[in-house]
C-alpha cells in the first residue's frame, strides 16, 4: 500500500509531512535538506487528541513584522511629511495583518497522536472537515489494529484444560421430615 498524505505540521522551526501507511503513521521531518522518518505504529497508540488553537508564536511573529513596518511608515510620514512613502512602506504590513486576521478568525485545528514511543502532529488551517475525517480515521485504524492484536493474543493463549468429570455425588440424604 502506498502512503497517503494526511497533512502537514509546519511551524517556525519545523517542517513535517504526515502520511498514513497500512500499519503506522509516518512522519517525514525535513531539517535543512535532510529528511528523517519516524513511525507511530497504530498498535502502539495511547492517545489521539483534537483541539483548536490560535497559535501564539505565529500571531506574535506577524504582529512583530506588522509593527516594524508600521513604525517605519509612521517614521517616514513624520520625517518627510509625505504620505506616499509612508503608504508604500505601510503596505508591507498588510500581508501580516491579513495573516493575523485569518488566523484569529479561522484558528488552526490540531490533531496529536501519542503512542508509547513516538508522537505525530497534524495541523489544518482551512480544511476543518478533513481534519475531523482524519481524526476519525486515525482513531478507527488504531482501534481496528489493536482489536486484531487482542484477537491474535487470544488465539495464542493455550486452551484451558477441560474440567475433570464430576464425580457422581452420593444420593442426597434428605433430612427426614419430622
Amino acid at each position: 500500500m502506498s502512503r497517503i498524505l494526511l497533512g502537514r505540521n509546519t511551524g517556525l522551526g519545523i517542517r513535517e509531512k504526515v502520511y498514513e501507511t497500512a500499519d503506522a503513521i509516518e512522519v517525514d521531518t525535513t531539517d535543512q535538506y535532510e529528511l528523517s522518518r519516524k513511525r507511530v505504529l497504530f498498535e502502539d497508540i495511547v492517545l489521539v487528541t483534537y483541539h483548536r488553537e490560535v497559535g501564539g508564536g505565529y500571531v506574535g511573529a506577524h504582529v512583530l513584522i506588522a509593527t516594524v513596518f508600521l513604525f517605519i511608515a509612521a517614521a517616514t510620514a513624520a520625517a518627510q511629511g509625505g504620505w506616499l512613502g509612508a503608504l508604500i512602506v505601510g503596505a508591507f504590513a498588510v500581508p501580516s495583518i491579513v495573516a493575523i486576521l485569518v488566523r484569529t478568525l479561522l484558528q488552526v485545528d490540531v490533531i496529536s497522536v501519542y503512542s508509547r514511543r513516538a508522537r505525530a502532529k497534524i495541523r489544518f488551517t482551512f480544511r476543518k472537515e478533513l481534519a475531523r475525517e482524519v481524526y476519525g480515521r486515525i482513531c478507527a485504524k488504531a482501534r481496528q489494529t489493536q482489536r486484531k492484536i487482542e484477537e491474535e493474543n487470544r488465539a495464542l493463549e493455550p486452551e484451558p484444560e477441560p474440567l475433570p468429570d464430576a464425580e457422581t455425588l452420593p444420593p442426597s440424604v434428605t433430612s427426614p421430615s419430622a
Binding site: E43, D44, I45, V46, L47, V48, T49, Y50, H51, S115, R116, C139, A142, R143, Q146, I149, E150, E152, N153, L156, E157
Partner: peptide, 12 residues
C-alpha cells in the same frame, strides 16, 4: 481538548 484513549495490548 478532545481525546480518544486506547489501551494498546502487548503483542504476545
Amino acid at each position: 481538548f478532545e481525546a480518544t484513549a486506547f489501551k494498546p495490548p502487548e503483542r504476545k
